[in-house]
Every structure is written in C-alpha cells, then in structure tokens.
Nucleic acid binder design. Sequence first.
DNA 1: CTCGATGCAAACTATTTGCAGGCAC
DNA 2: GTGCCTGCAAATAGTTTGCATCGAG
Lengths: 143, 143
Amino acid sequence: MSDELDILRQYLGTRSMRYTPEREAVVREIFSRHDHFTVEEVYLALYKKRRHISRASVYRTIPILVDAGLVAPVFQEGGITRYEHTYGHEHHCHLRCLHCGRVVEFSEPALAAVEERLAKEHGFAIRGHKLEVTGACPTCQKM
Amino acid sequence: MSDELDILRQYLGTRSMRYTPEREAVVREIFSRHDHFTVEEVYLALYKKRRHISRASVYRTIPILVDAGLVAPVFQEGGITRYEHTYGHEHHCHLRCLHCGRVVEFSEPALAAVEERLAKEHGFAIRGHKLEVTGACPTCQKM
DNA sequence: CTCGATGCAAACTATTTGCAGGCAC
DNA sequence: GTGCCTGCAAATAGTTTGCATCGAG
C-alpha cells in the first residue's frame, strides 16, 4: 500500500469521511504523474483509463488532498489552477518561463532561515512558503 | 505630474495607444491607495467618487498597467485576483495569515542572489520573483 | 477624419452547488 | 440502516468580448 493512500485513509477516517473508490482513483492518478496538473487533466486522464469519475468529484476531492497535505496548488495560468503532489518530495520552488510556460524546479535552503526570522519578528506560526521566479528561458530569449 | 502618469503616457505613446481620461483615472485611483486591491474595489471606489468608468474598462486597463510595470498581481483569494501598485516601491514579499487574510510585507535581500544563481545555472533572463509565506498570525493562533 | 477606446450586455469558463439515488461503514 | 458521497445539470461569478458609438491624436 502506498503511503499516500494510507495518509488519505487516515485523514478521512479521523473525520468520519468516507474512503471511496473515486477518491482513491484520483490520488492514484495524481501520484502516477509528475507534472503540474489541472483538474481537467486529471479528469481526462482517468476518463481515458475507463475510470469515469465526474468532474464534480474531482473538484470536490482536490481540496481534501490539499488539506491532507498530499497536494498543493502551484500557480494559476489564465484562470486555471495547476497543482502538484507534494507528499514524498522535498519542498522546492519554481522558475517559470513567461513565454512558453516551461517550469524548472529548484530548492532554496535559505528560505528556512527566512521563515524562522518571520516567525520571530511577527509572531506567525509559519505553515509554508511559495517562491516563484519568472523570466525568459534560453529558447524564448532567442526569439 | 506624477511619475506613474508619465510612465503610462510614455508606454501608450510608443505603441499608438491612447491616453484616455478613463485610464488616467484608474491609475490615479490605484496609486492613491496602499492596499491589495481587486478590480471590483477600484471600480467601486471610482464610482463613489462620481467617476463612472465601466468594469470592462477597468478590466481592460489593468493588464496594460501590469505590462507597463506599474502594477502587479499579488495573489488570488477565492478566485479573485488582488493587485498592488509596484512603481515607486522597493520590491517586497508577503507574509499572509491563512485564517484572517492579514498581510505583512517584508523585504528579503537574499533573493537577488537567488535570481543571479538561477540566471547563471539555467540561462534564464530573470524578470522577477514572488515569495509568499503563509501561516497563522498571532491573533488567529489564540483562537 | 481615423482608428483605438468606451460602455453595455451577452458570452465564456472554471468552479460550485442542489438534489436524487448510491454505497461505505 | 444512516448519512456521507456521487453524478448530473443548473447555478455562480470573475473575467472577456461583440458591437455600436465616442473621442484622442
């Protein structure tokens, strides 16, 4: 049993929510891919695999996964939200090309210190951070 | 004449776009406030001041100001985009409370070095960055 | 004068929701 | 069996757009 399904089961179990085949299928699909996906893409991928789960259920499942710490929104692009699965991955930041949309992931250890500083200075209990650097990738610079 | 209007005039002038009273009013309104505003808020603020500019025009103006470097989107909250004016301000990052929405601005000089590193390592021409740290503010932690 | 901008209302589209079964527990 | 979940379709809401008209250059 993969860890992410265990986490989902535990999350749901402790709040009298149900572990359904639909929710499991969405998690399996999301953890089988390693990209920045949209709800529509998950829906279509499952549909092609003969798992006909309604868009509404996918939309209803994602926030649960976000709250369970398995998934996080990465950014919005033209009004569409893109997510990534976060469980099992070291936290990372994104370098995105504004022209072609290419995304490079990188880690930035210095941000841990920034979080600590902010916690101390402003009394916040830090939950996390999101750093996105934007620009033009090598290919798009030539055009 | 304030700098932001000069910049707008210049931006428009160099691409045969028109410097209209509506565009000027939107810029004046945006630079008169120091918050993270939505399109609707700008529209209503102008409306209260008897400047009846259509929502459509505000929506059409914002992307121009973003491209001109006067304004930037800060974050999305429940599907609504919030912006801030950037011209005349040192670049800063945001520390946001997930419960009450309170936002603290802070500057993080270390990010300039991060940008340089990324430019070198990945060949990107960096345009800018957005760092958002989230958590619970002191008040909300007590609840 | 000419062509880009405005206002209005209608269109769009991602996302949410009400409701009638269905199924996890 | 109970009540949470699903699928469907309709509703919602921020944003965009077509079109007739206006006005900046």
